[in-house]
Design a protein around this nucleic acid. Sequence first.
DNA 1: TAAGTTATTGACCTTCCGTTCCAGAACGCC
DNA 2: GGCGTTCTGGAACGGAAGGTCAATAACTTA
Lengths: 194, 194
Amino acid sequence: MARPKEFDPELATQEAMEAFWEHGYAATSVNDLLAEMNLNRGSFYGTFGDKKQLFLAALDKYDEQHSEEFRAVLERPGSARAAIRDWVMMIARHCTGEAGRRGCLIAKAAVELLPHDKDVARWIQRMHRRNERIIANVLKRGQAEGEINPRLDPLVMARYLLACAAGGLRMLSTASASPRDVREVAEIILKALD
Amino acid sequence: MARPKEFDPELATQEAMEAFWEHGYAATSVNDLLAEMNLNRGSFYGTFGDKKQLFLAALDKYDEQHSEEFRAVLERPGSARAAIRDWVMMIARHCTGEAGRRGCLIAKAAVELLPHDKDVARWIQRMHRRNERIIANVLKRGQAEGEINPRLDPLVMARYLLACAAGGLRMLSTASASPRDVREVAEIILKALD
DNA sequence: TAAGTTATTGACCTTCCGTTCCAGAACGCC
DNA sequence: GGCGTTCTGGAACGGAAGGTCAATAACTTA
């Protein structure tokens, strides 16, 4: 019973996410965002509150899209061990080429804002725990089915995999390592499952 | 044969480094720097050129101080294997408590500036290659002395250790993992040397 | 002590920052 | 077709950003 929006907030959030992903939080000005989102200031502040709230929405959108991709691999039926392997190799692929250059939005947010921003700190910690749990569950299944060394602690191992794959391989990409270099390191990471 | 500076440029660079380390590049304004360095604008621009040049100088200073600490452990005489182990555990210690909260200035610089800043990109790549070389040399020595599996490729292994220790453990610290969590993951990383 | 050089100081410049506000336009409902 | 409500477009805000500049001060050398 009022004038409808002329833009799609979901699509606009997507554009904002891409902009933040490319340039980081501080280096993306509201003007940049308006241009990328094809919005004017009134619509921007009326819909999204302010820059910070939009950033958190962009984090949600990023996680939504990427966690879905990862969970599809990790939680598929069949070999748990192969699922872990494919997940690590998927990250390795994300760490080279164009996608690798951009890095991971969540990691960028953590480095740029986490020490001082309590909202972002909470958000990141929540995601990290969730991811640990997802991987630990796959490991437990692999242990139950005899594919993974049953003497390993699933939660510690999940932490290891998450840190080395999501953190370590990303670091290689910032050092502009070749796809082959990244794959070689990924293989060593996976050896820990034996 | 002219008026001498009233401040110590080295000390001022140190203060600038701490400020950048704490808040990142973009979020540290020139005004912030002036306050931390106890300088006025004229002296600042006269001595350091501009914000960006000062940042590169701060990176140098950071590397100078920290690489010395790491090399002292890595290149000491005695067991190469123990040296690698102590180095990883030293990083683990750096990833908890107050130091862990701040993270690593170089990693922060990489994430914040690398995709778009060619100067920083070059700087980071140079450092990364140097660090790879240092670790690979220790690994080679360990292999020659029969302490480390001789079938491992020293350079690949160096990349692995650097990525997982300097990149992976740092990630745990951003997720505010406990010292014990970090140590457990560090132990798994070191298992790859067997 | 005078000349030459460099450091200090603080005012000042332009540009951009994130945000607010308001007049006008577009819709659903009575 | 008026009415209430929301959205749009853009001007305007105060302040902070990075950087410049000219006047003054402090030192060395001749």
